[in-house]
C-alpha cells in the first residue's frame, strides 16, 4: 500500500463515524419518509399503503391550499417590499451621519430577540383591548379598531407585517456588508466620467451588490416558505384557515390530527416547492452577478 492510498484509507476511516451518523439520522429517515408519505399512519401501529391518496388530498385540503397561497403571498411580499425596504435602509445606514452606529444597532436589535417571546408580546398588543387599539382610540381612529388576529381579513396581513420587524434589520445588515465591500475608487472613477446619483446606483452599486442580493433573496424566499412560529403562536392558522402557512399545515396534520403519513406527503411537497423556487431564483440572480 503506497503512501497516498494509506492516507485515503485513514481519511475514509475518520469519515466513517460522521458518515454513519449522517446516514442513520438523515438519509435513512428521509428515504423512510418517502415511503410513509404513501401510507395512512397515525404513528401508532403499522402504516397502511394507500398509494397517491395523500398527495391528491393535499390539493383538496384548505389547510394546505390556503397555507400554500399564504406562503406565496409572504414570499412575494418579501421579494418586493421587504427586500426593497432593507436595501433602502442599508443605503441610508451606509452614509455618514452622527447617530449612524446607534441607528444601525437599533435596526439589528429585533433580530436578537426570540421570535417566540416577540410573538407573545405582539399577540397581547394586537388584541382587541390591546395596545394598538388603545393608541388608535387615543388618536381618534377608533372606527378602524379591530381584533387584528381574530379577523380573516387582517390576521395574515398582521403576521406579514410582524415578520418585517425582524426581517428588515437582518437583510439590511447583509446589504450593508455588501455595500461596504464595493471599492470606493469605482465610484470615484464613475464620478470622473460624469456619473451622478441614480446612475451611480444603477451602474455601480446594484451590479456590485448582486451577490448580497442573491443571498438576501434566497433567505427571504426560503424564510417565507418556512414561516411557522408566528402563525403557530399567534393564530394557529385561524380564524378558519385564513392564516395557515404550508409549514403550519404540515405540523398540524402530524401533531394535531395524528396524520403522520399525510403530513409527510405535505412536507415532501413543501420541500419540492422550496427547491424549485430556490433554483429559479438563484439562476436568475446569479446571472446578474458581476465579478471584479
Amino acid at each position: 500500500m503506497n503512501l497516498k492510498r494509506k492516507q485515503v484509507v485513514a481519511a475514509s476511516l475518520f469519515l466513517v463515524p460522521a458518515a454513519a451518523i449522517f446516514l442513520l439520522f438523515f438519509y435513512v429517515p428521509f428515504i423512510q419518509s418517502i415511503y410513509y408519505s404513501f401510507t395512512d399512519w397515525s404513528g401508532i401501529g403499522a402504516p397502511t399503503f394507500i398509494g397517491w391518496d395523500n398527495y391528491l388530498h393535499v390539493w383538496k385540503d384548505p389547510h394546505m391550499t390556503e397555507g400554500l397561497k399564504n406562503s406565496l403571498k409572504m414570499a412575494i411580499f418579501g421579494l418586493l417590499v421587504q427586500n426593497s425596504l432593507a436595501l433602502l435602509v442599508a443605503i441610508s445606514l451606509n452614509r455618514q451621519f452622527r447617530t449612524r452606529s446607534f441607528i444601525r444597532t437599533a435596526f439589528y436589535l429585533p433580530v436578537i430577540i426570540s421570535l417566540v417571546v416577540a410573538s407573545v408580546v405582539w399577540g397581547q398588543m394586537l388584541q382587541f383591548d390591546g395596545f394598538i387599539n388603545a393608541v388608535l382610540n387615543q388618536i381618534g381612529l377608533g372606527a378602524i379598531t379591530e381584533d387584528w388576529l381574530g379577523n380573516v381579513k387582517t390576521s395574515f396581513p398582521s403576521i406579514i407585517l410582524l415578520t418585517q420587524w425582524q426581517a428588515i434589520g437582518y437583510c439590511a445588515i447583509i446589504y450593508l456588508a455588501g455595500l461596504q465591500a464595493i471599492p470606493k475608487d469605482m465610484y470615484e472613477a464613475a464620478e470622473i466620467e460624469g456619473a451622478r446619483g441614480f446612475s451611480l446606483f444603477r451602474y455601480i452599486t446594484l451590479p456590485m451588490l448582486m451577490p448580497a442580493v442573491s443571498i438576501v433573496l434566497f433567505l427571504t424566499v426560503v424564510g417565507a416558505l418556512k414561516l411557522f412560529d408566528l402563525p403557530y403562536i399567534l393564530t394557529n392558522g385561524g380564524p378558519g384557515t385564513s392564516s395557515y402557512t404550508l409549514f403550519l399545515a404540515v405540523y398540524n396534520a402530524a401533531f394535531k390530527e395524528n396524520n403522520y403519513g399525510y403530513a409527510t406527503a405535505g412536507g415532501i411537497v413543501l420541500a419540492i416547492f422550496i427547491v424549485i423556487v430556490s433554483i429559479v431564483q438563484l439562476t436568475f440572480t446569479r446571472r446578474k452577478e458581476v465579478e471584479l
Partner: peptide
C-alpha cells in the same frame, strides 16, 4: 369522525365567530 374532519368543522366555526357569513359549502372540507 377523524380528527381532521372535526378540526375542519372547528375552522368553519372560528370563521363564523370572526364575523364571516356562514357558507354551508365550507363544510365540504
Amino acid at each position: 369522525m377523524p380528527a381532521s374532519a372535526s378540526n375542519a368543522m372547528v375552522d368553519v366555526l372560528t370563521k363564523v365567530v370572526s364575523g364571516v357569513k356562514f357558507d354551508p359549502s365550507d363544510l365540504q372540507a
